[in-house]
C-alpha cells in the first residue's frame, strides 16, 4: 500500500461488504475457525509428518517422503539421508506460510543447487537444519524437526505464468465441500515466492472447471503477469477434477471443518498435496473478486447428510461455485 503520490485508498461501508458476502478476519476466526476447527485437531495440519502419514492412510497423493531429522546430533549425518535422492526439499515440521523451506534441485553431495541458480554448501544446509530444529520457523518457536521430501517435478504448464517459484493451487474446503480456489503465481517482486502479501499474483479459479475468473495483485485487478506478460485468461489448470477430489479427501482425513489445501502438480504423478492450513487467509476473496461468506452460508444451510459422498459434495460445489 503506497501512501505518497497515490490517492488514499477508497473506503467502503461495512454494509456493502456484507452485501458482497465478504468474510472478515474476526468473523473467520470466530464463526468458522473457532467453531469448526477443534484445537486438538490442529496437529493434523500443523505437524507435517502427521499430515503426511494421514495422507498416505487416506490415499491422498503427496510428495515422496525421504525422512526426518529430530535431534541436533543427527544433523551432520543429513548427507546419508539425501545420498540416494537426486533432489530434495527440507521443511520445518511445524512451519507455516512457506517459511524455512529449502529446495535443492540437484546436488553431488558437496555442492547444492537452489532453484534460482544459486549454489550452497554443506555448512549452509547444516545451518539451515539447525535453525529448523531450534524452532526458528515453527509456530510459537517451539522445538521442531526437519522433514525431507523429494522435490515435486513441477509440470511446466504454468511456466509462462510464474516468475521462478512454485505455483500452487489453494482450495478452501468447508465441511468437505471445496468452496473457493485460486492459484498463486510468483513474481519478481515476491522474490519467486508464492505469498500474496509479498507481491505474488492470485488468480481465482472457478470450482466448476478450474478456469481463471479473476486475478489480483496487491488488492488490485490485474490481467497480465507483471514479469512474463502472459494473459491470465489463458491459464489452464490440468487435472482439475483430481484437484477437487484431493481436496475433498483431505476433509476425510482430518476432523477439521474449515481449512485450506495447497496442491501442486507433478509432471508425472499429477496433483500432490503440499500442505494443509487450518487458518487459510482471506486474500483468496480478492483473487476471486468475490466474497467467501455467501458460499459458506450456502453450505451451512444444507441439512446434515445432504451429500453423503465425496462425489456428491464435489458435484454440488461445482454446480454452485462458479
Amino acid at each position: 500500500m503506497k501512501l505518497f503520490g497515490m490517492p488514499l485508498p477508497r473506503i467502503v461501508s461495512p454494509r456493502s461488504l456484507q452485501r458482497a458476502g465478504v468474510l472478515g478476519m474476526n468473523q473467520r476466526n470466530h464463526a468458522y475457525i473457532m467453531r469448526y476447527n477443534r484445537r486438538s485437531d490442529y496437529p493434523d495440519v500443523d505437524d507435517k509428518l502427521r499430515t503426511k502419514q494421514l495422507a498416505i492412510r487416506y490415499g491422498v497423493a503427496t510428495a515422496e517422503l525421504i525422512g526426518s531429522i529430530e535431534y541436533q546430533y543427527q544433523v551432520r549425518h543429513f548427507l546419508d539421508l539425501v545420498a540416494n535422492a537426486p533432489d530434495f526439499v527440507i521443511k520445518p515440521g511445524h512451519g507455516s506460510g512457506g517459511r524455512g523451506i529449502l529446495v535443492i534441485t540437484h546436488h553431488d553431495g558437496g555442492v547444492f543447487h537452489k532453484p534460482n541458480g544459486e549454489v550452497c554448501d554443506y555448512d549452509f544446509i547444516y545451518e539451515h537444519i539447525s535453525n529448523i530444529l531450534s524452532g526458528l520457523y515453527s509456530l510459537g518457536g517451539q522445538v521442531d524437526y526437519a522433514l525431507f521430501e523429494r522435490c515435486i517435478d513441477f509440470s511446466d504448464v504454468y511456466s509462462r505464468f510464474s516468475f521462478q517459484g512454485v505455483p500452487d493451487v489453494r482450495l478452501i474446503v468447508f465441511k468437505g465441500y471445496p468452496v473457493m480456489s485460486m492459484i498463486r503465481l510468483a513474481t519478481k517482486e515476491s522474490d519467486g515466492r508464492a505469498n500474496l502479501h509479498q507481491g505474488a499474483v492470485g488468480v481465482g479459479l472457478s470450482i466448476r472447471d478450474g478456469r481463471p475468473r479473476f486475478a489480483a495483485s496487491h488488492n488490485r485487478e490485474i490481467t497480465h503477469h507483471p514479469d512474463t506478460g502472459a494473459a491470465f485468461s489463458e491459464l489452464v489448470v490440468p487435472h482439475w477434477e483430481e484437484h477437487l477430489d484431493l481436496a475433498a479427501r483431505c476433509a476425510e482425513m482430518t476432523p477439521l471443518g474449515y481449512f485450506g489445501a495447497d496442491i501442486a502438480t507433478d509432471r508425472k504423478r499429477g496433483p500432490l498435496l503440499l500442505e494443509l492450513n487450518a487458518r487459510p487467509g482471506l486474500a483468496i476473496q480478492i483473487a476471486n473478486g468475490q466474497g467467501l461468506l455467501s458460499r459458506l452460508r450456502l453450505i451451512e444451510s444444507l441439512p446434515p447428510g445432504a451429500h453423503p459422498t465425496r462425489a456428491e459434495k464435489i458435484a454440488f460445489a461445482r454446480e454452485n461455485f462458479n
Binding site: 485508498p9 473506503i11 467502503v12 458482497a20 489480483a216 485487478e221 482471506l282 480478492i286
Partner: peptide, 19 residues
C-alpha cells in the same frame, strides 16, 4: 472477543470486492 464485524482496514482491503 465476540465482535465478528469487519475491521476498519478491511473496509479498504476488500473494497475491490464491492461491485
Amino acid at each position: 472477543g465476540t465482535y465478528t464485524g469487519y475491521r476498519f482496514t478491511e473496509l479498504m482491503r476488500f473494497q475491490p470486492l464491492v461491485k
